[in-house]
Design a binder for these strands. Structure first.
Length: 379
DNA sequence: AAGCTACGCACTTATGCTGA
DNA sequence: TCAGCATAAGTGCGTAGCTT
């Protein structure tokens, strides 16, 4: 894996910790640290054009006999050329399906009741999917077959005028196209279900808020990564390895409960703590919930990184939109850290209370044997 | 019992939109 | 310009039902 470093001759990432000083079983420590450092580089370099070095290795061996009717169906194990062609074919299939069903933009046929089809004036007659039926229903098969037919006849012969795939030498089968079309159908069917079934819609909303919550954690991690260079200058050590997404605090918009009253009172507390003005009462406020497993040393590092970012933000002349207030009410969550973790990061008290004695949890927690140099030395 | 296929589902990532 | 969000694409996983 080579990252393009067009304008930066100096070694982009030098080891923080001499690998020789580390016991062999902690080799992965360095790997992780290097990976994270590359991320820092990446963040710094954000807008560089990425010209992928075409790894010229032509390991596309011709299939002498194919036991499977598929070649490009699964992405796993495909060459980069094959992946490109695969992607291109998927797009073409989707395009044809859109044309055939008139699903050009948002299709919004409120719902199924009383819809006498072909009601819309369209440039050409539409076929329609029946999302209440499965992919292999004859109604749906008909549409799929049509789309497959179009793409197949246009793209199967590299010498034909209609051919427009990126790599003429990559092979594929009609069955591949069929599979792609079915995948598209399924995803549209899912959308249909989300739109037409309130139960599913509710689920989707729930998962949506979880997704957003996860995104916030990643954001938190990314921001802290950006503060690393300055932290290193100030403290002569590199805490980059603490930035596991899972170890970041939760930032929740509401408690995970059905109880409306509880939600309201939670909201009240947040609004009050955020000191929202009278005209801001409906603004979003998030509660910051830290992992309980954290040792103080870990908390201090995170706080320091956050302070660096806050100072940077303040120093900027341009006033950017204020971020959503994160309120710390002192609540924590007790989920054990996922993945292997360094001993100095875990609070002894917490471990004794929540893990010690529970064989299953003890088993789940994985520790590196040694703390990285410069950390966990004061106890 | 093991392997395969179709399917639903959920997670991750990429991309684009919006409002300050 | 950027934080926050929505959406779609890509992918992996669990499972039901079937075959070997």
């Amino acid at each position: 894996m080579q990252f393009p470093t067009p304008t930066q001759p100096p070694p982009p990432f030098s080891p923080v910790i001499d690998p020789n000083l580390m016991p062999p079983q902690d080799r992965t420590t360095n790997e992780r640290i290097h990976a994270l450092e590359r991320e820092v580089e990446h963040l710094k370099a954000q807008k560089r054009p990425n010209t992928a070095p075409d790894e010229g290795s032509s390991k596309h061996r011709k299939k002498s006999k194919k036991p499977s009717p598929y070649i490009l169906r699964l992405i796993n194990g495909l060459s980069s050329k094959q992946i490109e062609v695969r992607k291109s074919l998927m797009r073409k299939i989707k395009y044809e399906l859109r044309q055939l069903t008139g699903r050009t933009d948002k299709e919004d046929t409120d719902n199924d009741s009383d819809n006498s089809d072909t009601s819309f004036h369209s440039p050409r007659p539409h076929l329609a999917f029946d999302f209440r039926a499965n992919v292999d229903d004859s109604v749906n098969e008909k549409v799929i077959d049509r789309a497959v037919h179009f793409v197949w006849t246009e793209q199967q012969d590299p010498k034909s005028k209609t051919f427009s795939l990126p790599h003429p030498d990559v092979q594929f089968t009609r069955e591949d196209l069929h599979e792609f079309a079915k995948t598209t159908f399924r995803s549209w069917k899912r959308n249909y279900r989300e739109e037409s079934n309130p139960e599913v819609a509710k689920k989707k909303a729930a998962s949506g808020s979880k997704v957003r919550q996860d995104m916030r954690k990643k954001e938190l991690k990314a921001n802290r990564l950006k503060a690393i260079p300055q932290y290193r200058k100030m403290h002569k050590r590199n805490p980059v390895f603490i930035l596991e997404t899972d170890w970041m605090s939760d930032e929740i918009s509401g408690p995970d409960t059905e109880d409306e009253e509880e939600k309201r009172s939670h909201r009240r507390r947040l609004v009050q703590a955020a000191r929202l003005g009278s005209h801001q009462q409906d603004d979003p406020v998030w509660e910051k919930i830290r992992p309980a497993f954290q040792a103080n040393e870990l908390i201090d590092i995170k706080d320091e990184l956050d302070r660096i970012n806050a100072a940077k933000k303040k120093a900027k002349k341009k006033q950017v939109r204020a971020s959503v207030p994160r309120i710390n009410l002192g609540n924590t969550h007790n989920r054990p850290p996922t993945g292997k973790i360094w001993p100095f990061m875990v609070s002894q008290d917490w471990y004794d209370t929540h893990i010690e004695g529970n064989a299953e949890l003890e088993d789940e927690m994985e520790f590196y044997t040694n703390d990285p140099t410069g950390f966990g030395e004061v106890s």
